[in-house]
Structure formats: C-alpha cells, structure tokens
Amino acid sequence: MTRASWIRLAVLGSAVALLEVTCRLGWVSRHAVIAPSEMVRGAWRALGQADVRRDMLLTLSTVAQSFVLAILVGFAIGVALHRMPRLRRALDPFLASYYAVPTFVFYPVFIVLFGLNRWPLVAIGFLFAVVAVAINTLDGLSRVPRAFLRTARAMKLSGAQTLARIVLPAAAPWLFTGAKFAVAYSFIGVIAGEFVQAGAGIGFAIAFAYNSFDSLTMYGLMILLFGIVGTINMTLWSYERRLYARRGGR
C-alpha cells in the first residue's frame, strides 16, 4: 500500500472513532445518530433476517435489469448518433444538459404507466443511466484514430471485423466509463424510487425503519447499502484508472 492509502485509512479510522466517542458520551442525540459499533450490530442483525435478504436481492436484481437495458439502448444510441453527425450536432446541447433535468419527476408518470411494481423503478434507473452510456459510447467512437480505420480498409476487413477487431478495442476504455456510470446511476435511480414509493427493496426498508423510529435497523441497512454500492463502484473506478493509465492517459 502507498503512503496515501495508509493516511487515508488512518483518517477514516479516526473519523469513525471520533463518531463512536461522541455518541458514547452522549454529545449527539442517540435519536439522531447512533454509534458506529451499534450500526454494525444493526447491520449484522438485519443480515440475519430473511426479508432483509430478500429486499436486498430484489434491489440488486432491479438495478441489474436497468443496467443491462441502459447498456444495450445507450450503446445503440451512441452508435446511431455517431453515424449521423448532423443529428448529433442538433442533439448535442440536449445531451449536455440532460443531467441538469431532474429526471426523477417522471417517476409518478411511470407508476401510472406501468402500475405499482418493479418496472417504474427499472425505468427510472434506466433513464438515469442510459444517456451516460450513450455519451461515453459516442466519445469513445469519435476518438478511434483515423489511421486505425484506414488500416482496416487497407486490410480489407469487413464491417463486422472492423468493429470487433479495431473499433471496440480502441474505444474500450470509454465504453467501460459508460458502464461504470451506468452502475452508479442505476443504483441512484432505483434506490431513490424505492424511497419515494415502493412496497419492497432496500430503499423502502430504510424508509420504513425510519418511519417506525427503528434507528438500529435504519443505520444497519444504510451501512450495508453503502458497503455494497461503495465496493462495486470503487472496484470499477480503480480498474478504470488502470485501463486509462495503460494507454497513457485520456
């Protein structure tokens, strides 16, 4: 481990210790924040309950569905826009301001449209994620060096061969960036939706625990969720860094 990682570990460790001490001494109301050791106890207890495990699996599978849909559709949009430069130019300002729009407001419309089941959640996660995939696909495709494509033509590669042997490998880091965002944004969309209106899932379970003043379960579920999402995101992030470093920066 590098020096920075050690310092980071020390900083995080002392932050947790500080919170523990403040809570134990009663400096913050135990109705607001509970001690980290209590949070871990809550997480452990929650993990032992069958319905919590079911909620977690449900959330994960919803996220997976929205992720897969976002990847497929986003990639298709990216490729299509790459082929149509004029449409791309016209759409460019809208793509660039897409994330300024609180997409979230359409959640109620989806509920009316699909009914109160998992599909509105998939749809909102999808909407959050799909444009990031499309933008990064577009970005990757337009960064494939011209010389590569000329080489493909010189070697008389077919369209499919060019795609598989040249374009996709050259654009791979950007495609990966798109996938990384798709994971993070699917999680954000699905869990936000579960908070607002849903009958199951980990976001719903946290909101439920909050409404019934069960702070042990609430904080337990919260650190479980942050643990899972954080581990997935950070793994993707560090892999991505290596991917770009290998080709000498972005």
Binding site: A32, V33, F195, M222, F226, G230, N233, W237
Partner: peptide
C-alpha cells in the same frame, strides 16, 4: 480523491433520514 469519488457515486438519497 477516492473518498470524494465514493461519496459522489453513492445514492445520497439514503441519507435523508439522517
């Protein structure tokens, strides 16, 4: 940096009770 990136990508809505 990794701390900031991790904070950026978690669903912050979960923190609303806190």
């Amino acid at each position: 940096e990794p701390i900031l990136v991790a904070l950026y990508s978690i669903p912050k809505i979960t923190l609303y009770p806190v």
